[in-house]
Write a protein that binds this DNA or RNA. Structure first.
Lengths: 257, 257
DNA sequence: ACATTTTTTGACACAACGTCATATTATTTG
DNA sequence: CAAATAATATGACGTTGTGTCAAAAAATGT
């Protein structure tokens, strides 16, 4: 009746898990297909019918996996966030000063934005109430958790910086304030970047470099040691890319080719 | 045939302009109605049928004014941007240091966001390719122009600050960099604010105050005089609100009541 | 081989879009 | 003022997409 492999009478765990595998495999197939459609033809171009015909099943079957187009988009969003949080975790584990680490977070965000501009846009879609309202709160949960993990990572780094003496603890609200500042700056910059505003025509040539600079300006302003006068931020960027994001840098190179 | 009052054979300019007036009046009526629907029921709840019945005309008539739902949303967006640029212009004309003025811009943005969170969300809608693709490039133009006016204002202030000696002109790219930084920070913060992330649960209590702080931190970092150690930023906020945004503050008070 | 459960299917009812020939209303003209 | 003409409003129509569900098909268990 209610299609769901988890309910199979489990006598033989064998066939049971095979079914589960097949089910999840198809779920991924649907998401892959949908994401491709989304990127190539926009949200309008993504229709249950198209997805169904693409995977060579009928519409009904797709509905067995996802209750609506919106839940598919949610599914795509979750996969994107996983990719992103993965990069953040790598940044977190970098061996260096806390300041290096927090900078690495910003870099991760920026690289992701360059590498998958479309995905970022898709994540943005998920923030609109129109989409949200059609997704069960339960399914929205996982996305929220990942967002919280990211803020958690950032907050941890800032707190460690205070512990380590890199950052003066003048006021109790400092960690929140810094994280909010960096987060919104990165978020806003990436969004502006892909919002179709012709920066070049406005006389802005290197928005990405500027954001890197601004990030460090903000950190400096909080007296987060070592101040950017004391080292070469371009050099740091290079080092971080080499150490943490070699894969991504390669992909980026290929993309720009 | 092609309904448009601008085409009337203009013998008597009198009846001519009366018709034009009526036409434009109805155009506003449509936008008012649509905006209300949009705010109350989201993009899904905004339908040509509903708009039509609300203004007591038929669907066809609405289509005489706007070729699609999306163009209505565009129309709403333009009106919102006008409100916003109006606040920016007021900020620009503030009598005080250039630093005061640039801070006033940030304040304007933030006040607008608090006052009309829904409208900000609607403006965000217009950035999505799905909506954009259904609006004639010509109609998109006016929105773009307003965005350019805003950056223009900001850039002017920064350049004046350099001329006035408030801001050292260490590198040529500084104005762009500052504007981008402030813009993206404000943009990002406001967007995050209304993106449904439960800041309170993440331990962040006063995001708005934090943004005000961060704005000044960034300005300080560029050595924009007078540095925020030399005055009380909360005091400045108050002064600016009193001098420029009395109306808005009143509305805000009423809203929070 | 048969019974039972799971999965797939496509027909159906519905909602909204955008078009367009026709009806209605307003304006001009003789 | 009435006929002619132009402007405007209307709603039926064809189309596309949604989500549901009973029946068919396939897989599984005995």
């Amino acid at each position: 009746m209610h299609a769901n492999p988890a309910r199979t009478t489990d006598r033989t765990t064998d066939s049971h898990s095979r079914k589960q595998r097949e089910w999840q495999q198809r779920e991924q197939l649907i998401l892959d297909t949908a994401q491709q459609l989304l990127q190539q033809h926009g949200l309008q171009g993504l229709t249950m019918e198209r997805v169904a015909s693409e995977i060579e099943y009928s519409r009904g079957t797709v509905y067995n996996h996802f209750a609506s187009k919106e839940e598919i988009v949610n599914g795509i969003g979750i996969r994107c966030m996983q990719k992103l949080t993965d990069m953040f975790r790598r940044a977190q584990q970098y061996t260096g000063s806390q300041r290096d680490r927090i900078a690495a977070l910003g870099l991760a965000h920026s690289l992701y934005a360059q590498l998958h501009p479309m995905e970022l846009q898709q994540l943005q879609l998920l923030k609109s109430p129109d989409i949200r309202s059609k997704i069960s709160p339960q399914k929205q949960q996982s996305l929220l958790q990942m967002e919280q993990e990211i803020t958690g990572i950032a907050l941890d780094i800032v707190r460690s910086a205070i512990t380590d003496g890199e950052l003066p603890a003048s006021q109790p609200a400092v960690p929140d304030s810094i994280v909010l500042g960096l987060w919104s700056m990165g978020y806003g910059a990436n969004l502006l970047q892909l919002s179709g505003i012709p920066f070049a025509e406005l006389g802005m040539q290197q928005p990405l470099d500027m954001m890197w600079l601004n990030t460090h300006k903000l950190l400096d302003s909080y007296q987060w040691q070592p101040l950017s006068e004391q080292f070469d931020i371009q050099q740091l960027k290079q080092t971080l890319c080499d150490a943490l994001f070699t894969d991504e840098m390669l992909q980026l190179k290929q993309k720009q080719k």
